[in-house]
Design a protein around this nucleic acid. Structure first.
Lengths: 102, 102
DNA sequence: AAGATATGTGACCTTAAGGTCACATGTCAA
DNA sequence: TTGACATGTGACCTTAAGGTCACATATCTT
């Protein structure tokens, strides 16, 4: 899970995930144009995302297609974010209840 | 928001947030004991967390009390995580519906 | 077969992150 | 008011992250 957090820490990588969210299965060359960086930088970032399980790939001839895998984000949501986000929602609910009672 | 992602990227900092989640308002010396590191390392991490808005502090005499602020995590949940997590939930719901229909 | 296209690898550079320490400041308590 | 306690600051070191490039390999196309 640490690898996922670390992967999400870089804005370029989050942009790449956004690009794949908008259009899945893109090739390296296609992704390169979405980001102000050379092909090699993008490759490194994609490797980090892949090793974190956030991106999964498939080769088609000489091309490498990149697909978004939302499962790790989902896991972080369930096992981490919700822990901090839910008490907030609970507090709001309680506040709402108190307001309605008054 | 980038600062929040970067702050969450380090496991020591996540441990510190956990410690504050378990017991809010802890002092630096108290937090130091929860983590295998000198006081100075903890100070740096707390500074990062504070600058990201994840921790808010109050001074009481010579002590500095640290409080967890869940709002940035909530924002990341709403503006980022949910984007990737919800389609997954939607897919599960759809699958569930299809199974029930068959 | 040959050139164009798509991706891979390793070396390399620069900067910043993570961590420690010597030293300094502020505050409490007897 | 002196010593113990809590925190702050700046210098310093080491490692890794982010990025580029020269070069190599694989694949398509004609």
């Amino acid at each position: 899970m640490d690898a996922v957090f670390k992967a999400l820490a870089d804005s370029t990588r989050r942009d790449l995930l956004d690009a794949l969210f908008a259009e899945d299965g893109q090739t390296l060359t296609a992704l390169e144009e979405r980001v102000p960086m050379t092909r090699f930088g993008v490759m490194k970032h994609l490797k980090v995302l892949e090793e974190a399980g956030l991106v999964v790939t498939r080769k088609r001839g000489r091309e490498k297609l990149h697909f978004l895998n939302p499962v790790p984000i989902r896991l972080i949501h369930d096992r981490w974010v919700s822990k901090y986000a839910e008490p907030w929602a609970a507090a709001l609910t309680e506040l709402k209840t108190q307001l309605e009672d008054s």
